[in-house]
Design a protein around this nucleic acid. Structure first.
Lengths: 358, 358
DNA sequence: AGCAGGAATGTCATCGATGTCAAACAGGGA
DNA sequence: TCCCTGTTTGACATCGATGACATTCCTGCT
């Protein structure tokens, strides 16, 4: 007759494979998942059937059934535009890579409200672990999940109202060391540029900065401490403003990567004599001879990923708080004596004081 | 009696909420999803019940039921470490942001085999759309999905054996313009540094380079064309080798971002006299006065994201092939006449010829 | 009061894979 | 040949939310 077999709508399912192989769905599943206790000839038949039908298992169904362990990990960061965050993500990606885990990434632009929204979405998707660079200050909304056994790992900034693992930087040691170095070379007017004081890292580093000044016998001059600098552009103009003061600083320390970039670009143009130490490394930092307190965001991401993997395997236990070391890389830009003469030409070429030498 | 209500294992479900609110699961669902035809007092009861139980809907279940439209988009890129890719991802993220779509990111390190694996995983997770920077050269394995109506968008490099939308750069116009500029200023020995010839972008840009030379009446000198440069480090040494030749080029053009960084770092140290044009912008590029053919990966990601959104809404139609313009930004590093004197000091400071002026 | 008709709610099956448990089967020993 | 044990296989319920459809509840109107 004209009765045709209607072409199957949508994707082929395990049922279809089973039907074609002449077995039950369960047996097909056993074969596909490589379970033992399947006769090798049936296994073959199932495989060819699956290949013929281009069968693609549906993870949603599988994960729904085996509730609790999905194959997705959620990562919440500030913004993929910022190399700090994207390298962090690269590190996490690297750690998860071999373990059949997918990485769901969402960015918050450091807005607490958005953090809640994207975390919510991830929880609805039942991620196996949640990793986040927090922007919100209250994380009690995660308490329920923690009790349900969801591994939660905080990166770069610690959890506030919830107990969870965290991987942070040692924001003190090398910042202090850098300041001490500057003080040793005779600098007394040292300026610090930082992001918003609401950010954990900013206040930590500023605290270290102030302590180091005090230790060096220098009274912190609050007019030299500029905060709430969110991007390279404002860092650049803040630096220019500093230099234009009647009594400008002889050294500047920038407390994150974007601020470093902005400050360096101003210094390269305007003032070759000001000593400088940046935070986080950047392209050409070595070539230009810029001293930095450097860290490797990939390492942080990778480390946090390892913790996540362990928690997934072994269940959550006593939360860990890891502090990763930074590294002070002296490349010369912090060594300029405060007494160097100003060049007569402004902006005609990069500051020699900032260039690589060794 | 001692019969206690056992504390519910695992997460609360819609059933639990319904039970507590004294309605059926379906009604609870209607209330939660904001459907009409729910009396406001029942809606209230459901909401408070949901809040009490901290109910979190299970997207896996929902998406399994409504097969076809999940809320996840898959993005396959080379490597989050590379700012080109991470900014691409930032652009996609930005485009999807307001549409309740999650972004699943996987990286291939540009290995064709890995591409298949991660794409496979995304398909199993039933992404609503697939966006990828392809590394494989054969994409016939995607044909089935295409026929099932899955929107597939290629970025940066075109699809080969499958029909799909693609968003590419105009790899010709500005490369040619840059070469013409150099030729106009008298350069005859112009070197090009490119990535692997298997990469679409590398060969396209090299083709443009060769054509431009020919148009300018210069016979392409193959010894000046170096390929298979994969990272900044090898670009730096390749550049150093070039400069050390008996008859070094007077101008160099780098054909992607990592190569640009590497070349610039060598030029800054070793040879201020060689003219240079980079590809893709980078931090401090402006400050250092490096001329570049620039593009905005975020724009590409965003654009591709828009296409994905449209395809998701309106279904796939005739595939589009979009070519985004680049921009030639002249900042001085390409203007150095070939006859400039070599400086006597090597490596003592950045090349004035490469520094920003005006 | 009776009734039409829309609003509100409920029942049941379903999405696709898999855990549970039982049935069918095969092979070896008595 | 028959029984026993271990291996393969299958039937069925389940994960949680929701679509299709049925039922009950109102409200206004004759």
């Amino acid at each position: 007759m004209t009765a045709e077999i209607p072409p199957r709508q949508g994707r082929t399912t395990l049922q279809d494979v089973a039907r074609l192989a002449g077995v039950s769905a369960k047996t097909a599943a056993r074969a596909i998942n490589g379970e033992s206790n399947v006769r090798s000839d049936t296994r073959e038949r199932v495989f060819t059937a699956a290949a013929t039908l281009k069968f693609r298992p549906n993870r949603l169904a599988r994960e729904l059934r085996q509730s609790a362990r999905t194959g997705a990990v959620g990562l919440v960061i500030g913004n993929l535009d910022n190399p700090f965050y994207s390298q962090l993500a690269a590190g996490v990606d690297h750690a998860l890579r071999e373990h059949d885990l997918e990485l769901i990434i969402a960015s918050t632009d450091d807005e607490p409200e958005r953090e809640k929204v994207v975390v919510q979405a991830m929880l609805e998707r039942r991620v196996t672990a949640l990793m986040l660079v927090p922007s919100a200050t209250d994380h009690s909304y995660l308490e329920g999940e923690r009790q349900l056994g969801l591994p939660i790992i905080f990166l770069d900034r610690p959890p506030v109202t919830v107990v969870a693992d965290s991987v942070l930087w040692d924001n003190h040691t090398d910042v202090r060391k850098a300041v001490h170095e500057l003080a040793t070379r005779g600098h007394r007017r040292i300026s610090a540029l930082a992001d918003s004081p609401e950010l954990f890292t900013a206040t930590e580093r500023l605290t270290a900065f102030r302590e180091a000044l005090t230790e060096a016998g220098i009274a912190p001059d609050e007019t030299l401490i500029l905060t709430s600098i969110h991007d390279a552009t404002s860092a650049a103009s803040a630096t220019a403003d500093l230099l234009a003061r009647d009594d400008p600083p002889t050294a500047i320390i920038a407390l994150n990567n974007r601020i470093s970039i902005g400050a360096v670009s101003t210094l390269l143009r305007d003032d070759p004599t000001c000593a400088f130490v940046g935070f986080d490394d950047f392209d050409l930092g070595e070539t230009l001879g810029i001293s930095v307190v450097t860290n490797d965001p990939r390492e942080m991401g990778n480390y946090a990923g390892q913790i996540a993997l362990r928690r997934i395997r072994e269940g959550t236990g006593t939360p860990e708080r890891i502090s990763l070391p930074t590294r002070l890389v002296q490349r010369g830009s912090g060594e300029r004596p405060a007494s160097s003469p100003h060049p007569s030409t402004r902006g005609s070429r990069p500051a020699p004081g900032l260039s690589g030498s060794d």
